[in-house]
């Protein structure tokens, strides 16, 4: 017998003998999990507070123009240049980069790139997390290879609890779902050497988040 048939037969033998309908009904009857309390009623403020707790920095900007200005200032304060890498995301392409004299290269990060700018699918106030789909517009390497990452998110895409990450029809459809989904909550870190927290273990050493627009949920 093949390993798959044998293991599945053993699992089935040790599982409860019930119908699919009964299993689904039992699952549906389980109470939903409690989420962590937010540090206030304002999701955006809670997101920023939690990101700061996680070792990231964050700010709110009113519109795209302000976003570019904030980015220009951030980049200038850390690097003596204006280059960075960004995915092909239409929301990034639509930003008025020239106004800040910034020079994006659209594509995936290469070794040696210092800074990447990404646009998140959404953010979760409960934990201070940005979530990004890994797809043609948002290469995973842009989240991992650079020293520094800036992530933008629309204020209306900030949600209170973790479960909301999955609240999208595309994720339910096997033909449409992205190959990956990454939740980023702070700069890469490790405490593997004598329990001392060090930032920049393998991924970005710094994470800066810009919450764009002011729409309240």
């Amino acid at each position: 017998m093949s390993a798959e048939r044998e293991v599945l037969a053993r699992v089935r033998g040790a599982s409860r003998k019930t119908s699919r309908g009964a299993i689904e009904a039992e699952l549906a009857a389980l109470a939903p999990a409690p989420s962590a309390p937010l540090p206030g009623d304002d999701y955006h403020q809670a997101l920023i507070q939690n990101l700061e707790r996680n070792g990231a920095s964050a700010a709110r900007v009113a519109d795209r123009k302000e976003a570019v200005a904030a980015l220009t200032e951030y980049i200038a304060s850390r690097y003596g240049q204006r280059r960075f890498v960004a995915g092909h995301d239409a929301r990034l392409a639509a930003l008025p980069w020239r106004e800040g004299g910034l020079l994006p290269r659209f594509g995936h990060a290469e070794p040696g790139d210092a800074l990447s700018v990404s646009f998140a699918q959404g953010a979760i106030a409960e934990t201070g997390s940005l979530y990004l789909w890994l797809d043609r517009d948002n290469p995973a390497l842009n989240n991992l290879l650079c020293e520094d990452q800036v992530i933008l998110v629309y204020a209306e895409d900030v949600h209170p609890t973790l479960e909301r990450v999955w609240d999208h029809d595309k994720l339910r459809n096997s033909r449409a779902r992205p190959r990956g989904l990454m939740m980023i909550s702070g700069p890469s870190s490790t405490a593997d050497i004598a329990m001392q927290l060090v930032l920049g273990a393998h991924g970005p050493r710094a994470l800066h988040v810009l919450v764009l627009g002011g729409g309240d949920e």
Binding site: R53, G128, R136, R179, L181, M182, I184, P187, S189, G203
Partner: peptide, 23 residues
């Protein structure tokens, strides 16, 4: 670790899809 969330929590579903430039 006593954190509320780790720096990275990722979900992988499969190989790169048509048009993806990495993975």
């Amino acid at each position: 670790t006593g954190q509320a969330v780790t720096c990275y929590t990722s979900f992988y579903s499969g190989p790169r899809r048509e048009g993806d430039i990495d993975g």
